[in-house]
Design a protein around this nucleic acid. Sequence first.
DNA 1: AGACAATTAATGTCTATACATTAAAGCTGA
DNA 2: TCAGCTTTAATGTATAGACATTAATTGTCT
Lengths: 254, 254
Amino acid sequence: MTLPLHERIRSKIEAAILSGALRPGARLPTEHELMREYDCARMTVSKALSSLAAAGLIDRRKRAGSFVARPKVHSMVLDVPDLEQEVTQRGQRYRFELAKRIVKRPDIGHDEEIQLAGSGDLLLIEGVHFADDVPLAVEARLVSLTAVPEIAAQAFDRSSPGAWLIRYVPWTEAETRIGAVPANREVAARLNLPPGSACLFIERRTWRGDEGITLVRQHFVGSAYDLIARFGSARSMAEVKKQSVQNGDASAQE
Amino acid sequence: MTLPLHERIRSKIEAAILSGALRPGARLPTEHELMREYDCARMTVSKALSSLAAAGLIDRRKRAGSFVARPKVHSMVLDVPDLEQEVTQRGQRYRFELAKRIVKRPDIGHDEEIQLAGSGDLLLIEGVHFADDVPLAVEARLVSLTAVPEIAAQAFDRSSPGAWLIRYVPWTEAETRIGAVPANREVAARLNLPPGSACLFIERRTWRGDEGITLVRQHFVGSAYDLIARFGSARSMAEVKKQSVQNGDASAQE
DNA sequence: AGACAATTAATGTCTATACATTAAAGCTGA
DNA sequence: TCAGCTTTAATGTATAGACATTAATTGTCT
């Protein structure tokens, strides 16, 4: 490659972080060590580190050094990160009720499953999120056991797989699809709604590099959940401040 | 302020861009001119400009200079920027049908209108977006005439106010609320749907600095519209690639 | 006039150095 | 012991200069 040196340094460290070789919280070499490693001036490594810090991948502390940042919920502009946290933060009691949890091979004919699984197996997790014992959303999730073998040891009989994944598996790409759909019989039954009720539907796939991690489909009770995102355009794009549960009379058109 | 010099330079230029004093396409001073203006070294102004470039606010071209970037749709992670463009891009014919267009004072009791209008008036625009003559969404929009007096001259009898605003009025903050609601009688009638059908509801407010620009509420036909956002976490957050019209059988839970 | 080459004005990268700032770590004394 | 001071190792900011790279401009030759 003929990339500028500071870019090469940056992407080497970035790769180490994203691959998991450098785990969240780990300390990375000091600028002086990096100068020696790459035989360059301090400004050059500083530029690389500044860029990583600006992207939120690392935290830098004077006298202490630079550390791999723990993945911050707020950096994910459209993720619906941690229902558990959102619900408890509002003073409600959160519960995840596991309905199904099986290891399966990807279905032939379901391209997205095959693409996600690669040559390995999938963990299928289905369940319902409750706030104060009122159902808030149903979730059906597939996790690649190739990408995340550790998840096999997790029970998820009370906490949700989403929260666990967010904490332990960094992703590099995500695609989110948002729509409004009527509740079918199964969803309606699980959410305790009349069939046909409007539900917010969210489907999200995440990858780490080329490797698929998870595919999740969630149906939220339309009258109880809004997704809210705030952001500033110019300053750091990562300023989403809130994603909140419960809407009021949002449907009123004026 | 005791901000570092490169930050002060950055924010001064940024303010000039966001306020409209420096318009898109305008050329800004060369690094040498800025060195003289701020009596500092070239690396310092370079740092400021690099930061602006990284944020997508300016484009830099060797030999030519640095220019204010034209606002890019893609840098807005959750904006639903230009329905017109999305529809035509899919090979369909787009039409905006204006239903109402009045100047009004903010209603007492509607806090959001008062907050938006400040001491001035509001332009209320209501209409329907069509793709190939099939209604896709209804929209009710308020625009602050204080912030955007130029909009009074626009007709919007065929093109939508959203497209116009995106092009001519840069914003600094946005808040988007997304939900799923049943169509009420009025919405159902305008969208040619049975009442109660699931609709994707989007409400967005945007500001430039402290000044409110617009508040828009849109109801999309649930069975015809999905919002899709892709992004990478680490690399530039601004990599949303698509927001697409039309869903298929997304409601199937597996 | 038009193709091509040379000039040059801008940004891009990098070095080497200096001093400022912060906070961890160690030290000292009541 | 522990509060408070001092040291010090790290990042943060800035300077001044060198050379590289790119592409707009200008000049030259046909």
